[in-house]
């Protein structure tokens, strides 16, 4: 649905309109929030934060100019996610995230490890992409977003049992491919 269609839906029925808006923009907002807090928070933390963001959007919906809905939502999500990250990590909110990241990457050994990890992640993602849809999505939803079978099934519009079966098969296939990849075997990632 376009933004104008969503606004019309809200004008007809506020709750149903907001429900459509929520469904449409939830992945976008969740992605922003999760990418910010995934290292320190849980899936439940992200869901709570997302629900707060949408509640605030609902209350300020009339003030949002036409065509600026997604931008407003993205800005709001980032601010809320940063605040949640600081709260969960116990950091000083006044300290910029970039400085923290720089602090974490201060040592040369750490840099080498990160480069090596980045290379492995890139290779891993290539093998995952080679699995094709929906196996790649199932694996990422499970291991990156932390979703369970039911949530994956709802996202991919599949039956939960099917999700579990395909996940099992996808893991087996991925293990075979990683075992054949020297990057992983030489580094001892895959025995």
């Amino acid at each position: 649905m376009t933004e104008d269609e969503l606004r019309m839906a809200v004008s007809r029925s506020q709750k149903e309109g907001f429900r459509l808006l929520f469904r449409q923009y939830y992945p976008y907002v969740y992605h922003i929030v999760w990418n910010r807090i995934r290292t320190v928070g849980t899936k439940e933390d992200a869901e709570e934060c997302v629900s707060d963001i949408f509640a605030e959007l609902f209350s300020q919906f009339d003030k949002v100019e036409s065509g600026a809905l997604q931008g407003f939502l993205g800005t709001l999500a980032r601010r809320r996610a940063v605040n949640l990250f600081h709260r969960l990590a116990g950091h000083d909110p006044a300290l910029p995230l970039d400085e923290e990241i720089v602090g974490q990457m201060a040592s040369e050994e750490q840099i080498e490890e990160d480069l090596e990890a980045a290379h492995l992640q890139k290779t891993l993602l290539r093998h995952i992409r080679d699995l094709g849809e929906p196996d790649a999505q199932i694996l990422l939803l499970r291991h990156f977003y932390g979703c369970n079978s039911a949530e994956i099934a709802r996202t991919l519009r599949m039956h939960p049992v099917t999700v579990r079966v395909r996940m099992s098969r996808a893991l087996r296939k991925l293990k075979e491919r990683l075992t054949a990849d020297p990057d992983f075997t030489e580094n001892g990632v895959i025995p």
Partner: peptide
């Protein structure tokens, strides 16, 4: 990851 997988649906 973002290009491979959509965020979970609510």
């Amino acid at each position: 990851i973002g290009s491979l997988c959509p965020a979970p649906q609510p």
